[in-house]
Design a protein around this nucleic acid. Structure first.
Lengths: 365, 365
DNA sequence: CTGAAAGCGCTTACAG
DNA sequence: CTGAAAGCGCTTACAG
C-alpha cells in the first residue's frame, strides 16, 4: 500500500515556531508509528525500539532526541504489534470463582491500580472449577491471549492442577491465598489464621466461655485456617472448641441460618458465635431476629471479611477485615515485577487482617 | 529465522491409523499457525483465512477439508496477528464508575456470557468522571488497545462528552441507561420509571398515605427517573409527593441515615419511606434501629436495586430488582452484533424491573 | 552504540 | 472460487 505511506509522509511535516523548537504538524487520522518517530528523529526504528524498551545501549543524546519526538507527536507503541513480534501481550488476567462481588471488584481495583503504572491492561475471567472443561478452558484463555501473567484469587488459587497447568504452558502467575501453597515469589498470603485468633482473644476478653463456631466448607483452605486460628486462639486462654458448638456451613447466607438454628436450639446455647464469613454471620442475625434473640444483649456475633454487609447490619457487625484492594495491588505488582525482571529475587508478601469491633460484641458480666 | 521453520516442518508429520483417517502428530511446543493449516490442507493461507472469517466465497469441499485440518490439529487463529492485520483486537471494554461491587460483577458476568459465545475477551476499566484527565484517559485506553467496542455502565453511561469522544475516535459502544439517551442501536434501557411507579402502587395498596421519599443525587438520571416514576405512580391514586416528605440523598448509606433522621424527626413522620436505592434504605434501617422504631410495624421501608444487602437485612427489605446480569449480556450481544454485522438493524432493548416484596412492607389498618 | 534484514501470524487489495 | 504479493507495527538475531 505505497499510497498510504506517501500520504502519511506528506502529512507529517515539521515547522519552526520562533524560539520554541520544532513543532510537528501531524495527520490526525492516523496514529504515529515507530517509523514516523524514526524518520523525524533521523535514526533507525531499531534505535527507537531500544528507547521504548529502555535498553541501556543508547547514547544519551540520541535517547533524548528520540524521547522528544515521541513526546511531541504523542507516539504510543502499539501493544499488538509489540506483542506479535515478541510473543507477549501486555495483558494480565485475573481468574476467579469467588461469588462475592465486592471482594472481586476490590481486588480488581487494586490490580488495576498497579496496571495503570505499568501499561498493562486487565482481562477478567471467572471460571467454574467443577466443570470438566475447567483446565482446558483456562488454558485456552491464557494461550489464545498470550497473557503475560495471571492472578489467581481464592479459592481457585488453591487448585494445584491449575497451577501445574500454568507452569506447563509457561504462563507466570501469582496466587492470593491464605496459606503458603507455593514459592514465595508466586504468592500473596493473607493470614486468616491470625485474624481468627484475634477473634478468639476478643470473645474471651468479653467474658464469653460458651462459644459457638460456624466453620466454612471443609475443602476451602480459608475454612481450615480460620478454624485452626480460632481453636489455637481459644487454647491460649485455656479454652477449646466444644464439638457440640461447632457446625459446618458453606459460606452462604442460607447455610449460616441452618447452622444458627442448630446452635441456638441447644439446651444451653452459646453466648457468642463466630461465623467464618460475614454471609453466614448475617444468616445468624436472621435467625436471632426471627427468634427474638437480641444481638448483642443475648448473643454476640462475629463475622469474617468485613464485606459491605457487615457495616450495614443492625447492629453493625464485628468482623475481620481483609485488605482486598491492597492484596490485589500487591499481587499485580509482584506479577509485573516477575514479568519485567525475571531474575529479581522476590520475597514473601504477607498481608495482615485485623479485627473491626462494632456493635455485635457484647460482654458477659 | 529459517531454522525455526525447518524444525517446525520436520515436526509436523502425518500418519495413518488404519481406517481412522489422517492423524497429525504435532510439535507440542509451538502452536500451529495458518501456514501449517494451509500446508496440510494443500491450499493457500488466504483460503484458510476465508474459512476462519466465514467468507461465503469458498468451495464447500475445500471448506470442509480445511475445517477438518483445523479441528485435527487444534488450530486457533492468533487474535494479535488477526488484529494487527485488520486493525482490531477482539477485545471488548467495560467502562464504569459505579461503586456497587455486586452490580459491576453481575453485569460483568453477563457480558462475559455473551463474549464466551463469540470469542471476545473483556478488559475492565473503572474511571473517575470528575478527573480532568477523564476523557483523555478513556480515549488512550480505547485507542491503545484498539478495542472493538465498549460497554458503558451507569452513571458514566450518561456522559455525553464520553459518547461524543468515542464516536469521534470510531469506537463502537453500547450504553446501559435508564432513559433513551441515544439511538436505539446504542442502548440497553432499564425502566427505573416503571419500577418506582410499582413501588407507589404497592405502598398505596398497603394503606399508606403519608409517604416519605429519599431521592438520589440530582445529577443522576436514575435519581430523576425514580422520582418521576414514584410521583406519577402516586398521582394515579390521587396522591402526590409532599415536599416536606422529600429529601435528597447521595445514594450512600450515610446519606440514607441523614435523610432518615430528617424524616423521622418530623412532627408527623411518614408511615412509609421509599429510598431510591438499597444503600440509603439500609441507612434508614439503621436510624430506625437506633430510635427503636420497628420495621415494618411502625415504618415501612422500600429500597431499589435488590442488592445482596436487601435480602440480608432484618427484616428482609422490599425492593425493586434490576436484572443486572441479563442487562450485561444483552448489552454485549448488541455490541457484538454491531461489530460483526454493521448493517444490521438493531431495535431498542428494554429491560423491566420488578418489585420484590419482602418483610419490610407493613399495612396501615 | 547503531542499523539492515527478516520475521511474528495474520488480512487487505488485487488479479485471475 | 482461489492465490501471490505486500503490508499491519513492532522485535529478534545478527552484523558492524
Amino acid at each position: 500500500m505505497p499510497g498510504a505511506r506517501t500520504s502519511a509522509e506528506a502529512a507529517a511535516s515539521m515547522a519552526d515556531i520562533a524560539g520554541e523548537g520544532p513543532l510537528y504538524v501531524w495527520d490526525q487520522k492516523r496514529r504515529p508509528t515507530i517509523n514516523d518517530v524514526a524518520r523525524l528523529a533521523e535514526v533507525s526504528k531499531k534505535t527507537v525500539s531500544r528507547v521504548i524498551n529502555q535498553s541501556p545501549l543508547v547514547n544519551d543524546e540520541t535517547r533524548q532526541k528520540i524521547a522528544k519526538v515521541i513526546a511531541d507527536i504523542g507516539y504510543e507503541p502499539d501493544p499488538q504489534a509489540r506483542g506479535l513480534a515478541s510473543q507477549r501481550s501486555f495483558l494480565l488476567g485475573v481468574v476467579y470463582d469467588n461469588p462475592n462481588g465486592q471482594y472481586i471488584v476490590n481486588i480488581q481495583n487494586g490490580i488495576l491500580e498497579a496496571c495503570r503504572k505499568s501499561g498493562f491492561e486487565l482481562v477478567v475471567h471467572p471460571c467454574a472449577r467443577n466443570s470438566p472443561q475447567f483446565l482446558k478452558e483456562v488454558r485456552q484463555f491464557v494461550e489464545r491471549q498470550k497473557l503475560d501473567g495471571v492472578i489467581l484469587l481464592p479459592p481457585v488459587s488453591e487448585d494445584e492442577a491449575l497451577a501445574a497447568m500454568l507452569t506447563e504452558v509457561g504462563c507466570r502467575f501469582v496466587r492470593i491465598a491464605c496459606v503458603p501453597l507455593d514459592m514465595a515469589a508466586h504468592l500473596v498470603v493473607y493470614e486468616d489464621y491470625k485474624g481468627a485468633a484475634e477473634v478468639a482473644d476478643h470473645l474471651v476478653q468479653l467474658g464469653h466461655r460458651r462459644i459457638g463456631f460456624v466453620a466454612g466448607p471443609a475443602h476451602y483452605r480459608s475454612a481450615h485456617e480460620r478454624r485452626r486460628g480460632f481453636a489455637d486462639g481459644l487454647a491460649r486462654h485455656g479454652l477449646g472448641l466444644t464439638p457440640e458448638l461447632c457446625v459446618e456451613g458453606a459460606y452462604t447466607f442460607e447455610s449460616g441460618q441452618a447452622c444458627a438454628e442448630k446452635l441456638l436450639s441447644l439446651e444451653t446455647p452459646p453466648t457468642a458465635i463466630f461465623a467464618s464469613n460475614d454471609e453466614m454471620a448475617a444468616g445468624i442475625y436472621r435467625v436471632a431476629f426471627q427468634h427474638g434473640i437480641s444481638i448483642p444483649g443475648q448473643l454476640t456475633v462475629v463475622g469474617f471479611d468485613d464485606s459491605p454487609l457487615a457495616s450495614r447490619t443492625c447492629p453493625a457487625m464485628t468482623t475481620v477485615r481483609l485488605p482486598a484492594t491492597q492484596m490485589g495491588q500487591m499481587a499485580a505488582e509482584k506479577l509485573i515485577k516477575r514479568i519485567e525482571q525475571p531474575d529479581a529475587k522476590l520475597l514473601e508478601t504477607v498481608v495482615q487482617p485485623h479485627l473491626v469491633i462494632r456493635e455485635s460484641s457484647g460482654t458477659i458480666r
